[in-house]
Amino acid sequence: MAKDIYIGEVSENKEIRPDYYLMKVKLPLSFGNPLPGQFVMIRIAGLHDPFLSRPISIYSFERAKSALIIALLYRVVGKGTQILSGLIKGSQVEIHGPLGGGFEWPEQKKQVVFIAGGIGIAPLSLMAETLCRDACLPRESMTFYIGAQTAQSVIGLERLNDLCYNVHVCTDDGSLGRKGLVTGLFQKDIKKYPADATMVYACGPKGMVRALSKLFRGSAFQCQVSLEERMACATGACMGCVVAVRGEQGALAYKRVCADGPVFDLQQVIWDET
């Protein structure tokens, strides 16, 4: 019985930007080190409205002597996240995870590009950190593109500046970095990157991912994208969180974001069907 539901203790839960919260949860060491791209299901024990747990990717983690502390970055978008945002230090939460497969690192790649939209920064930041540390990738080979609505919603810039040589920022209103969309920002630079030697990691809103999908279609760029869908069981049983992908022989198949993902090869995702 490898997987389990853990009772975690909230050690910190603060609004770092308007509507953006960073929650730290203390878990037993048996939770294990999460892989970048993995997520947890979080809920308040005994609470049945909202009924389902909420999937949140892991932003960072630290191993202390007697506990593992995971950090979850989330934006308040509905009832579930609203209730989470009200939890105080010492509150107990049920944590199911770590779940899903993480990002992969093909070692033959020379360049890494991260493209994050909004809260999509969370799993990509952990991946950048992991590549720096474990794959010993030099800062020079990693570039981060961040898109957000306003300067207020650009999160974790200091951490990324330490990890990546180039961090490009754009905002919808131009209050920080360039004005415009992150896909446009990347598109301007695309020729700088050797398509077959570059690994792209992306996470963000559907519109951004869809635009990237168009941009990479037919190119040699490999892009791993972390997708988000409404989720119920997170064990792979309910078939609720599926996305359309090209399956065997290119035929349409519905794959589960929780169990087959959340990271998918962007070239395999079919957008017209969803």
């Binding site: 049945h48 409404r230 119920a232 609720g240 969180c241 349409l252 198949a253 519905y254 969803t274």
Partner: peptide, 15 residues
């Protein structure tokens, strides 16, 4: 194949 997504929606006390 099943139905195209979105396939689930939370409701009060259920889904």
């Amino acid at each position: 194949l099943g139905n195209p997504p979105p396939r689930i929606m939370e409701t009060t006390g259920g889904m």
